[in-house]
Design a protein around this nucleic acid. Structure first.
Length: 563
RNA sequence: UGGGGGAUCGUCUAACGGUAGGACAGCGGACUCUGACUCCGCCAGUCCAGGUUCGAAUCCUGGUCCCCCAGCCA
């Protein structure tokens, strides 16, 4: 296996492309497109499609991938979304170069083709109302009936269609339909509407048009006009393929792309439909499309996921026609794997417990050397201040520890990472609540740097921050958005939102160097997880950290086993 | 009860008539100045029933189950 093969595991779409190339089907061309509708933000499911389309183009010599906005429904679409989508695709690491297109660019051509269909007797203007049309359409098991308008003369159709364009009619008065087969077992072929009247302002064409082409009619022709070879879409369009092919067969288009369908991505513990994501945003269950708990690309970015991690994830999950739900742990694995090798380690204490080292001089401060990455010395090191009063994590002390607890407890000795061994001598408790408010410890000066000259070992190593030098910051801990793996399956899906999907800690302490951390900079807080500086809320000198993902924690697992 | 798709370890995914392999998860161990990383090991699968064949996840027949479709949405 070559390196390239490892990076690009086989899938059935790649196989089709490879075979087409072998047969020289499109003169050796590979040209794909990513065709979002600008009516919402991109999510990780779109990322799968983006990676597939741009990936297939990139891995074939001369392969190209267009970005095309499928903007045929002005009522739902907006420039806000086109801009966000472009930013997300770029962030993910893909580039359409000069091939940015809009279906609305083709409105004139699409109109001309529609006229052509009418002239060929393959389309007609219908006056059936929406309800009537539904009734005429038939059902899944019963064939439809032909509209009384079906055999309107070509001249009348031409006249009516021109007047539809001219704005003479109200919305809903007429539609243009393809004349195919009202008895087709495939409902999409029962004379589908291809143009409707919408007196809506379009975000690009303004008020130029008051008739807008439908998806099925637009998409195939747009593909053909752009010279697309492989038109990759999701499974729900499989039934539409005969219509895709029908339209192209009727018209003198430059080429006939092949539509190939794959299964959309489902991830557990989240939702993926635009409608549901919209509801979460609009009803305030999350702070916005870029809330770090959202499966949107912008949300994942704010959470601290990296483009490399998302790409790796999309590669790992594969491409098939199977209905599947991917386990969140696969995504988290990709994130950890990328962050582990690229991220500097620093120390932060999320829930501080004050520790006074009795035998350490009052006014002394030492600068201890701490490498940024245990396995990558080339990443360098920084100095961390140490003094008499430090903070450790509340979780790292237990008054009566269970077996196999390697951390601090009365009389126990542990190592402070890159500093000294300390032993717990005394606990100070709040007189009223009994809560432990402070620990009194002693340190062994001979263990400076973290090793004992007498060779004695400690099982535990704790992270810490010097109290006088600490930078207090806000840290946000994110967890899965839903409590159940597949919220979509319940009628009341929003009732399974995880109330603990975010915890905001205001009193976290980080080492002073982090005052310089820049928005979107990633760190590993040792023993805790990967964090990144929030790109919205950070103020210079006072970063706010989002937890991207925890470290694997076999101690926590131990605890779960006991339950 | 029409049409279109799909069924392989717990979850994804390979194998295209010739040893059912990989990833994630789980479990166990080694290592460790992160209970991290890394490494090693284990667990575990061809929807069912027939048939063809020396040999079937793969081919044939018949079932079963799941998903999608009746927008002037995409």
């Amino acid at each position: 296996m070559t390196e390239v093969d490892k990076l690009t595991p086989p899938n059935f779409i790649r196989a089709i492309v490879r075979d087409d190339l072998k047969k020289n089907k499109n003169n050796g061309r590979v040209h794909t497109r990513f065709p979002p509708e600008p009516n919402g933000y991109l999510h990780v499911g779109h990322a799968k499609s983006i990676c597939l389309n741009f990936g297939i183009a990139a891995e074939n010599d001369g392969g190209l991938c267009n970005l095309r906005f499928d903007d045929t429904n002005p009522e739902k679409e907006d420039v806000e979304y086109t801009e966000a989508i472009m930013e997300d695709v770029h962030w993910l690491g893909f580039d359409w170069e000069d091939r940015l297109y809009y279906a609305s660019d083709y409105f004139e051509q699409l109109y001309d083709y529609a006229v052509r269909l009418i002239k060929d007797g393959k389309a007609y203007v219908d006056s059936l109302g929406a309800d009537e049309m539904r009734e005429y359409r038939g059902t899944l098991t019963k064939p439809g009936r032909e509209s009384p308008d079906r055999n309107r003369s070509i001249e009348d159709n031409l006249d009516l269609f021109a007047r539809m364009r001219a704005g003479e009619f109200d919305e809903g008065r007429y539609v243009l339909r393809a004349k195919i087969d009202m008895a087709s077992p495939n409902i999409n072929m029962r004379d589908p509407v291809i143009y409707r009247i919408k007196k809506a302002h379009h975000h690009r064409t303004g008020d130029k048009w008051c008739i807008y082409p439908m998806y099925d009619y637009t998409h195939c022709i747009s593909d053909a006009l752009e010279g697309i070879t492989h038109s990759i879409c999701t499974l729900e369009f499989e039934d539409h393929r005969p219509l895709y092919d029908w339209c192209l067969d009727q018209l003198p288009v430059p080429c006939h792309p092949q539509q190939i369908e794959f299964a959309r991505l489902n991830l557990n513990y989240t939702v993926m439909s635009k409608r549901k994501l919209n509801e979460l945003v609009n009803e305030g269950h999350v702070s916005g499309w870029d809330d770090p708990r959202m499966p949107t690309i912008t949300g994942m970015r704010r959470r601290g996921y990296t483009p490399a991690a998302v790409q790796d994830f999309c590669e790992r999950i594969g491409v098939t026609k199977n209905d599947t739900v991917i386990d969140m742990s696969v995504l988290e694995n990709s994130v950890r794997e990328d962050l582990d090798k690229t991220t500097r380690r620093v120390m932060a204490v999320l829930r501080p417990l004050r520790v006074v080292i009795n035998n350490y001089p009052e006014n002394k401060t030492e600068e201890l050397d701490a490498p940024y990455h245990p396995n990558r010395p080339e990443m360098g090191s920084r100095k961390v201040p140490f003094s008499r009063v430090i903070y450790i994590e509340q979780d790292d002390f237990m008054e009566s520890p269970p077996k196999k607890f390697f951390r601090l407890s009365p009389g126990a000795e542990v190592r402070l990472r890159y500093a000294y061994f300390i032993r717990c001598e005394e606990m100070i408790k709040d007189k009223k609540t009994g809560a432990i408010t402070e620990l009194r410890c002693t340190y062994d000066p001979r263990t400076k740097g973290g090793n004992a000259p007498d060779g004695r070992k400690v099982k535990g190593t704790l992270h810490w921050v010097s109290a006088n030098h600490a930078l207090q910051t806000e840290v946000r801990l994110y967890d899965r958005l839903f409590r159940v793996p597949v919220p979509d399956s319940t009628a009341e899906w929003k009732s399974s939102i995880n109330p603990e999907s975010v915890k905001i800690l205001k009193d976290a302490c980080v080492e002073p160097d982090l005052a310089r951390a820049q928005p979107e900079e990633h760190f590993q807080f040792e023993r805790l997880g990967y964090f990144c500086v929030d790109r919205k809320d950070a103020v210079t000198g006072r970063p706010v950290f989002n937890r991207t993902v925890t470290l694997r924690d076999s101690w926590a697992k131990e605890g779960n086993k006991a339950k």
